[in-house]
């Protein structure tokens, strides 16, 4: 049995009074494309910095491929980082930036220059060696940062909000490329993001952070379809989180439950709910057209329920009464006291 690429054992990191990371245990498998997802200040970036070695744990241990890493400075870890603002050295050319790690290792000039050229070609920046960082666009800078990290052949590549600074079009293209790169190289990628869409579409597995703790780890389908806590249900995609009393009346035990808006359909007047479904009558408060779907805000039983229905599937008149229905199985029981 091989050891995990990264292992957190009950790791905590405090900044003064604040526990940025609070008792995190986590295994990341070799070759995974792993996402750390969470809001600002949830501890995800600190976890990344703990792997890189910029921070050291106050409690617990970190292993990288079976070797103890806590206490080791960044320059003694075979792990490289793509920084959020890229952190390219402004006094060096693109080529010198990429070859930096190799130069530090003591590799000869000719060899490291050819390796740097290869790495640049890999990120589609062939022939950019002589340019300066200031002459590059944001997307190109990120590719340089990527080449600069990958040329060292790290065991784990860390990416801090890799797509955060790019515009939408470029972001989609980079998502695609990063996935392809990771697959081709077989290197473990760990990236941090606050964008749940990015995490779900790119990662093999996702860890969701809140207030320094991991809420849930799983595949994108897992965390989306079977959120374990109210936080996950709410943060990953949008969900209707129903209180225990209402959920109980709908036959889902007196527990908090999560219900995805797109699981809800509209029933025509008088139409009964199919077998295994539940239904609820409500008054339409507002509707917003979002292209392929229309999001409806419906007031029912004193709560507001959001439903996403195919655009044009129902006449939308604010104030009208609607009958909502969904399969019982669409209600996912959440952890926590009723």
């Amino acid at each position: 049995m091989t050891s995990p690429a990264v292992r957190f054992q009950n790791v905590s990191r405090r900044f003064g009074e604040v526990k940025a990371v609070d008792g995190v245990s986590l295994d990341i498998a070799p070759g995974e494309l792993f996402a750390m997802l969470g809001p600002l200040g949830s501890g995800k970036t600190t976890c990344l910095r703990l792997i890189a070695g910029f921070e050291q744990p106050d409690e617990g241990h970190i292993e990288i491929f079976g070797a103890r890493a806590d206490g080791l400075p960044p320059y003694k870890r075979n792990v490289n980082t793509v920084f959020q603002d890229y952190a390219l050295f402004p006094h060096m050319t693109v080529g010198e930036n990429v070859a930096y790690g190799l130069m530090i290792k003591g590799m000869g000039r000719a060899e490291r220059e050819s390796k740097a050229a290869e790495a640049l070609a890999m990120v589609k920046l062939k022939g950019f060696e002589a340019r300066r960082a200031a002459q590059l666009s944001g997307g190109q800078r990120q590719r340089v940062a990527l080449a600069r990290a990958l040329v060292n052949n790290p065991k784990v590549l860390l990416l801090d909000e890799p797509l955060g600074a790019l515009d939408l079009k470029l972001r989609e293209q980079m998502q695609e490329e990063l996935r392809a790169l990771q697959k081709g190289l077989g290197i473990t990628f760990v990236f941090v993001t606050h964008d749940q869409g990015e995490a779900l579409s790119m990662a093999n597995r996702v860890a969701i952070f809140n207030e320094g703790r991991i809420q849930q780890v799983g595949t994108p389908t897992d965390v989306y379809e079977r959120p374990r806590t109210r936080f996950v249900a709410d943060f990953v995609g949008s969900a209707n989180v129903l209180a225990p009393d209402l959920a109980g009346r709908l036959g889902a035990g007196p527990r908090w439950v999560s219900l995805r808006p797109e699981k809800i359909t509209l029933l025509a007047d008088g139409q009964g709910a199919p077998e295994g479904w539940v239904s609820l009558d409500g008054r339409l408060a507002s509707a917003s057209y979002q292209g392929s779907v229309t999001r409806l805000a419906v007031d029912a039983e004193g709560v507001r329920i959001t439903a996403a229905v195919p655009a044009g599937s129902a006449p939308i008149v604010t104030g009208s009464t609607l009958r909502l229905a969904w399969p019982k199985a669409a209600m996912v029981l959440l952890e926590g006291e009723p």
Binding site: R68, L72, R77, N78
Partner: peptide, 17 residues
């Protein structure tokens, strides 16, 4: 504690660092 070192030679500079 087999360390995840990059396998480079140490030295005074590294010790100070």
């Amino acid at each position: 504690s087999t360390r995840a070192a990059a396998g480079r030679q140490g030295g005074v500079g590294e010790a100070i660092s």
